[in-house]
Structure formats: structure tokens, C-alpha cells
């Protein structure tokens, strides 16, 4: 930020006192960093290609369950290295979750701004859509769309992006209307500013913290949705792999080789837990008005 050495005033945003976050949040930050590094560096750190077969070592147990260090987390029914698959699954799941979160925020914020700017008919349409998507369980909607359109990676990400769009739309519309009715946005409008300038330069930065908090709260939900759909075999399709599809395929070997699904399952839990903790913490700090 550009506010360098200004003296802190009573009602200034609490930037000055930067205490260390609580240990759980710290853990979340560390774990999330680890996951991000894994996703970015997947090609470098992966011991094998995630499709490489090792038929002599099928269903080999991980090192800590009596296996060898050849495959630290064991292998699956085709002798594919679980660690390598886990690394690429993390990359895939995070990619989908990031893409979908950003798409959802973009769509929702845009529609919210459109509703606030045009009011009248446009607003009614947006609000009807908000009601509509808030009144159906998203999983069912997503399943219906997948049934009608079949599955492709792009469609899948866009579909998950529709999750929670209505929250951003509500927030963006509500805050833009209140800014426009008597606040800074009205002032800038009567300076002669174009809508682009009003929304891009003024309204968006003012509501960004609220939107970011909403994004951190939606992110784990999208990871859970993605893994749920992939677990059902309706999300990420082979030969690609994601955390959910690993659990789904590993389910068949639950009795003989539980390690196939335990590591991706643990990764899902820790990642969603981390982002939720960070999100709650951010919400309390940045925007206590959100529930």
C-alpha cells in the first residue's frame, strides 16, 4: 500500500499493529504455501510421471507401513506412484479451485454492479437469478448441467465458478447502491466520471476487502465440490487426476490398500481447513460485518 509513514489515527484501518496471527492460522498459511509450491513445482519435485506404471510393484505399501522408499507413499493397482499422483492432483485441484473462485467473483461482481448501475429491469433479473441459485442445492444443479452437456475441463471449471456467484452479486450490488445513493460514488459521478471510472477506480477498491474475504470463504467450498464430483466420477476424468478422483478410485482398494485414498483425503481436509481458518481470520480482521 502507498500509505507509508502517516501517523495512525483512531479510526484508521488497523494496519499499524501487525501482531502475529494465531498458531492455527499460521499453520494454515504454512500448509497453503506448501500446497501452492507443490502445485507450481509439480514437474520438478515429482519422483515419477503420474501415469508411469511399475507393474512389479503394484499395490506396494508406503514406507511407513512396511514398504520401501522406492515409492514413499506406496503405489496403486497399476503400480503408479501415489506420491506423484498426489502432487499432480494437488496441482489440478488447486488450479480448478482458483479458476472457479475467480470466475465466480468476476461474474458475481459484474452482475451486482450491473444491477446497481441500471436498477429497474436489469436489477430485477439479477435478483431473480440470485433467488433461483440460492434456492437450489448447487451440487444438484451442477450434476444436471454435467448430465446435459457432458464433461469437459473448461465446462467443469466454469460450472464450479457459478458456485457462490450470488454471494458476490449481493455484496457488490448492496455496497454499490449504498455508495451511489449518497456516498463517494455519487460524488464522483457528478464530477463527470464514466461508469468505468466510478466502478473500477472507486467502488471496486472500496469493496475489495469484503470480496476477498468472500473468496477465501468460497474457496474451500469449491475444493469440496470439485473433489465430491470427481469422487462420483463426474468431475475430473482420467487420465487426469485430482484429489477427489484419487479418493474415488482408491475406494475400490479400501480394504487391501487404504493408503491410496488416505493421503489425498488428508490433503483435502488439511487444505480446506487451512483456507477456512485463514478466511475466518481475515474476515474478523478486515470485515467484521460479514457473518
Amino acid at each position: 500500500m502507498s500509505d507509508m509513514t502517516l501517523p495512525a489515527i483512531a479510526d484508521a484501518p488497523p494496519r499499524a499493529k501487525r501482531a502475529l496471527p494465531p498458531p492455527m492460522v499460521l499453520f494454515g498459511l504454512v500448509w497453503l504455501t506448501l500446497m501452492l509450491l507443490t502445485a507450481v513445482l509439480a514437474d520438478v519435485i515429482s519422483p515419477y510421471a503420474y501415469t508411469a506404471l511399475d507393474l512389479r510393484n503394484r499395490l506396494a505399501p508406503p514406507a511407513f507401513m512396511g514398504g520401501t522408499w522406492l515409492h514413499p507413499l506406496g503405489t496403486d493397482e497399476l503400480g503408479r506412484d501415489v506420491l506423484a499422483r498426489l502432487i499432480y492432483s494437488i496441482r489440478m485441484s488447486l488450479l480448478i479451485a482458483f479458476g472457479a473462485t475467480i470466475i465466480g467473483a468476476l461474474i458475481g461482481t459484474t452482475l451486482g454492479f450491473l444491477a446497481a448501475h441500471f436498477r429497474g429491469f436489469v436489477e430485477q433479473v439479477v435478483l431473480a437469478l440470485v433467488d433461483f441459485s440460492a434456492s437450489l442445492p448447487f451440487l444438484i444443479l451442477a450434476l444436471a448441467v454435467l448430465a446435459f452437456f457432458g464433461n469437459s475441463m473448461v465446462l467443469f471449471i466454469c460450472l464450479l465458478g457459478l458456485h457462490a456467484w450470488e454471494r458476490y452479486a449481493r455484496i457488490a450490488r448492496g455496497l454499490a447502491i449504498s455508495a451511489g445513493s449518497q456516498g463517494y460514488a455519487a460524488a464522483v459521478r457528478q464530477l463527470g466520471a464514466s461508469p468505468w471510472r466510478i466502478y473500477g477506480r472507486h467502488v471496486l477498491p472500496n469493496i475489495a476487502s469484503t470480496l476477498i474475504v468472500s473468496m477465501t470463504l468460497a474457496f474451500p467450498e469449491i475444493i469440496l465440490l470439485e473433489s465430491g464430483l470427481s469422487f462420483l466420477g463426474l468431475g475430473v476424468q482420467p487420465p487426469s487426476t485430482s484429489l477427489g478422483s484419487m479418493v474415488g478410485y482408491g475406494r475400490e482398494y479400501l480394504t487391501r490398500a487404504p493408503w491410496i485414498l488416505l493421503s489425498p483425503a488428508l490433503t483435502i481436509v488439511l487444505t480446506t481447513l487451512s483456507v477456512s481458518l485463514i478466511g475466518d481470520w481475515l474476515r474478523d480482521r478486515l470485515d467484521p460485518t460479514l457473518r
Partner: peptide, 22 residues
């Protein structure tokens, strides 16, 4: 509550199967 929210139902279900059935 946080754990219940972050553990997906298929993971919880499979864990229960692993413990109580297997």
C-alpha cells in the same frame, strides 16, 4: 464444527467404513 465442515462427507464415510466395517 470446523472439522465437520472441512471433512468432506465421502472422506468421513470412507473413514467410518475403514474403522467400523474393515
Amino acid at each position: 464444527a470446523v472439522a465437520g465442515f472441512t471433512v468432506p462427507s465421502f472422506v468421513l464415510g470412507l473413514l467410518l467404513v475403514l474403522v467400523f466395517a474393515v
